[in-house]
Amino acid sequence: MADVTPLLELRNLRKTFIAGARTVQAVRDVSFTVGPGEIVGLVGESGSGKSTVADLVLGLERPDSGEIFYGGRPLPELLAGSGRGYRAAVQAVFQDSVQAMDGRKTVGWSIAEPLVIHKVARGAALRARVAELLRAVHLDPALAGRYPHQISGGQAQRAGIARALALKPALLVCDEAVSALDVSVQAQIVNLFLEIQERYGTAMLFIGHSLPVVRHLADRMVVMYAGAVAEQGPAEQVCSAPRHPYTRLLIDSAPSFEPGPSPAGPRRTRGEGLPAAGCRFAPRCPLVTDTCRTADPAPREVGAGHSSACLRAGELTVAETRPSRFSTEKRRPG
């Protein structure tokens, strides 16, 4: 995607929140791009800043510094006035679509709402478009007459996606969009996202905490830790040859069928707060050196389109980040 103008570009974004006496640097110098039709997976744990990035992209929060460009134009310019063009082109899919819909309105009404607001269709054409959208997400158009509490979690998620697709967006921002679902439903929704990418060429910023799910969907992956990008690159490369110890930890923590202790092992050395200086991951890092505690590592190229914010990224190979460093003795499962 290097020679194409990115659909979305985040450049050195910073966002700090003030919570009582504390200030929280939710997003620290985050830069990445999403190409047209590309799915970029954004992974990290709670507090990593991934949802704040989503809010910044959706224009729900303003960055303290840094810029967001959409189609080469800066976001404040696009949001000036009604901002409707941008708000139509960039749509959100949330974790809980039942809550995201108005419980007093029918599913059909919720899907129709953006079409009405943007004056795209009315009357019979509106009803036809709603039916078409329901079919596009493999729901029976008859569901339009139901209320959110009358449909299943999987159906609600499909309806939420139908609503997001109503204005034919170029980019979907999906925040934990499959996290609360049963595994069989999750698989269906993952398949639906892949189908949407293929059929409509819709780009996605897909935020999740499950590395296997994000890897399955994403073309590229951005790994966030404590507000900053730890590693980014092609999804397969990031997962099979991670160049940041935090990515390695995420991989080792993924559920698996290997009997015995998790390769990640227990890590009780984690402190409560983040260090004031140096690499934020240092207190949890098995490869930490003295330099890591003083120097804040900037992202560096480690391969084509692949960068890591680890001082030791250059010496990291798959073998060196292997979990043996975390491992404890083998125990039989109980």
Binding site: S184, Q186, A187, L194, P212, V213, A235, C239, A254
Partner: peptide, 22 residues
């Protein structure tokens, strides 16, 4: 069906997951 529906880190990517019908 339960086992096949969960994507795996060593599995294929960007292919439809075998999802059980509801």
């Amino acid at each position: 069906g339960l086992l096949a529906a969960v994507p795996r880190l060593d599995g294929p990517r960007k292919t439809p997951l075998p999802a059980m019908a509801q």
